[in-house]
Design a protein around this nucleic acid. Structure first.
Length: 649
RNA sequence: GCCGGGGUAGCUCAGGGGUAGAGCGCAUCCUUGGUAAGGAUGAGGUCACGAGUUCAAUUCUCGUCCUCGGCUCCA
């Protein structure tokens, strides 16, 4: 007999060799049906693997991440079996799970190709295979046996993987006619898988290295119930409606032109207005935090970027230098603002009493991103950073860093961004050649971020190898409508640029000292931020950001005078745009489709003219009642306040 | 940059070797004047661009540009 301990700390005595599935059965028959995996002393196991020692266990179902992963991992194997059925001789790379579903990288036989049209057949086959209720069996094998087996299949992808494994740790999983090298765990049998959707097909480099062969990656997602699949499909449809590229076009916020060039966004009037609102908002916040606005040119001498180190790092992948009539003189479109700001810092000697110096600029930069990477407004070749650089003393660093976190919180709160991930990006200790600057400075910079984050009580994940080449950073990531993660806010600690630019301040000791630089951009870039904002609000921006809010619709011309009064009033309320149906003095004629998008409609008619009132309608919310001018003022202010309250809090 | 889909009216898309289609939108007129509407008529297209095959190319082939899904990259 062995002792197992459940998550609630209750202990059960069971026979040695009992499986997770049997334990689940002994608890309840319903759990036995839903359970998908078990953790044994912290390690996730197959349900049908015998437990032979005392253990802490936890059972996982579809509701647990571990349950889903086991489910999808088995699904990947099943898909591989189906693909092998249609394309014998296919070689299999890796088939892991992702956030939603799984994929398998496959190398199809010479001359064969998978297209979207083939997916339906594979889906059918998978369901067919699932229904056979094949057991998924685990077996330990020696390295030699594993090598022999995959040599016979001449699957050099698997052989490459096996070569890197240690003898004694190699396990195979088999279901039906398919055997795969795999660590597991897996479902007991294939019948759990009830519904499948193969979502897409794409190329992917073997082992993620662009020097390697390109394999075919098939993405899929499976569910234990048909209903879950249907819900998933509906959700994806809904998500597509929120795509900022679609809404941006419909609302006439921005566009692209082949003639202007790839990845170069053109902001339409309404989009420009929206963006300006965001800039004004941030400028106000930054003013409160002691920032000063600066303005720098869009180009800079190549030498400037050689000093900063950016040219050596990115020169070949940038827009190439611009020649001038002068022999040998070259300028670059600026790919970042920092070097310009360093020069601003240097324009006069700085005292320790002057620090911190906080320079802010909505600076437009130009980066030649790989063509395949461009994506709506989230990845473009010209974008405007809400950039600022803080030059401070070492003793001010942590405090300054924390204040930047505060600014980011103000922004996220005002715009209801709750589901962000804060990520500390540190250097990759195994690839020091990727970074500039001394290890001591890197240690200091990384430590400063970690401490500031701890003191702010921020939940973070830490990623090694994600740092910028000149310093570590704290990034705020937000997901778009389709669940893709984008970096928005970023704060970076930099000891290197001050060195390279030989920045100094005079200390209280009358000696020269090196300031530390913080790079930061709460929005990240205006382009990307607007994109994410569109997807979060589905184009229903907070009132204070809405391009057009109120329409006056007089019923007949003799009320124009009254409409004019209302219009004057609205103008005083900082309402940007008024549209009137028939009064040309106020505006152009309104179109029906425009009317549908406008949040507030005022109807000014005979009754209202007599009583001095307006009928107010709110889009999606119907009649708000008949109001006097003052009542309407109060109403509108209240609406604005509702939207602003988050900011005021 | 790489693999694989696309590019037909302002938008969403159908079609297909013989001079181009729908719905929505747009324009004009009518109707309606407490209404986020109804009707009639009409204007919009070198079928992304360039070359080739052909009696004939928007359709087939190749190249270029752009775009979409991934991969790689992301100062």
């Amino acid at each position: 007999m062995i002792k197992i301990t459940l998550p609630d700390n209750s202990v059960r005595e069971i026979e040695s060799g009992t499986t997770g599935l049997n334990i689940a059965k002994s608890i309840s028959s319903r759990l036995a049906k839903e359970v998908m995996a078990i953790s044994v002393n912290g390690e996730v196991w197959d349900l049908n693997r015998p437990i032979t020692t005392d253990a802490n266990i936890k059972l996982f179902t579809w509701d647990d991440r571990e349950g889903k992963e086991t489910f999808w991992h088995s699904s990947a194997h099943l898909m591989a079996e189906a693909i092998e059925f249609f394309y014998p001789g296919t070689k299999f790379g890796i088939g892991p799970t992702v956030d939603t579903g799984f994929y398998y990288d496959v190398d199809l036989p010479e001359g064969k190709q998978l297209t979207e049209k083939d997916l339906a057949d594979i889906e059918k086959k998978i369901i067919e295979l699932a229904r056979t209720k094949s057991e998924i069996q685990r077996s330990d094998v020696s390295k030699a046996d594993a090598m022999a087996m995959f040599t016979e299949k001449s699957d050099e992808l698997k052989l490459e993987l096996i070569r890197e494994l240690e003898d004694g740790t190699i396990t195979l999983y088999n279901q039906g006619n398919f055997t795969d090298l795999c660590r597991g765990p897996h479902l007991p049998n294939t019948s759990y898988i009830k519904a499948i959707k193969l979502t897409s097909i794409a190329g992917a480099y073997w082992r993620g290295d662009e020097k390697n062969k390109m394999l075919t990656r098939v993405y899929g997602v499976t569910f234990p119930k048909q209903k879950f699949l249907e819900e998933y499909l509906v959700m994806m449809e809904e998500a597509k409606k929120r795509d900022h590229r679609k809404i941006g076009k419909e609302m006439e916020l921005f566009t692209f032109s082949q003639a202007v060039g790839q990845g170069l966004p053109l902001w339409l009037p309404k989009g420009a207005m929206l963006r300006q609102q965001l800039e004004d908002f941030l400028r106000k916040v930054q003013n409160k935090f002691g920032y000063e606005q600066v303005i720098t040119p869009h180009i800079g001498n190549v030498e400037l970027y050689k000093t900063s180190g950016h040219f050596q790092k990115y020169g070949e992948d940038s827009f190439q230098p611009i020649k001038t009539p002068a022999e040998g003189e070259e300028y670059m479109l600026k790919p970042m603002n920092c070097p310009h700001h360093c020069e601003l810092y240097k324009f006069k000697p700085r005292s320790y009493k002057d620090l911190p110096v906080r320079m802010a600029e909505f600076g437009t930069v130009y980066r030649y991103e790989q063509s395949g990477e461009l994506h709506g407004l989230t990845r473009v070749r010209s974008f405007t950073q809400d950039d600022a650089h803080i030059f401070c003393r070492p003793d001010q660093l942590k405090d300054e860093f924390k204040k930047v976190i505060d600014i980011i919180f103000i922004i996220f709160k005002a715009l209801d961004f709750e589901n962000y991930t804060a990520q500390i990006s540190l250097r990759d200790p195994e690839k020091p050649e990727k970074y500039i600057g001394s290890p001591e400075n890197w240690d200091k910079a990384e430590q400063a971020i970690i401490e500031a984050v701890q003191e702010k009580g921020l939940n973070t994940v830490t990623e090694l190898g994600e740092a910028a080449f000149y310093g570590p950073k704290l990034d705020f990531m937000i997901k778009d409508a389709l669940g893709r993660s984008w970096q928005l806010g970023t704060i970076q600690v930099d000891y290197n640029l001050p060195d390279r630019f030989d920045l100094e301040f005079i200390g209280a000791d009358d000696k020269r000292h090196r300031p530390i630089m913080i790079h930061r951009a709460p929005f990240g870039s205006m382009e990307r931020f607007v994109a994410v904002l569109i997807e979060h609000t589905a184009g229903k921006f907070p009132l204070w950001l809405t391009p057009e809010q109120v329409v006056i619709l007089p019923i007949s011309e003799k009320y124009n005078e009254y409409a004019q009064n209302v219009s004057d009033f609205l103008n005083n309320c900082d309402i940007r745009s008024l549209i009137d149906d028939r009064n040309e003095k106020i505006g152009r004629k309104i179109r029906d489709n425009e009317l549908k998008r406008i949040p507030y409609l005022l109807i000014v008619g005979e009754k209202e003219a007599e009583t001095g009132q307006v009928s107010v309608r709110k889009q999606g919310d119907g009649d708000q009642g008949v109001m006097s001018k003052d009542e309407f003022a109060a109403f509108l202010n209240n609406e604005v306040k509702k939207q602003l309250s988050a900011f005021y809090n």
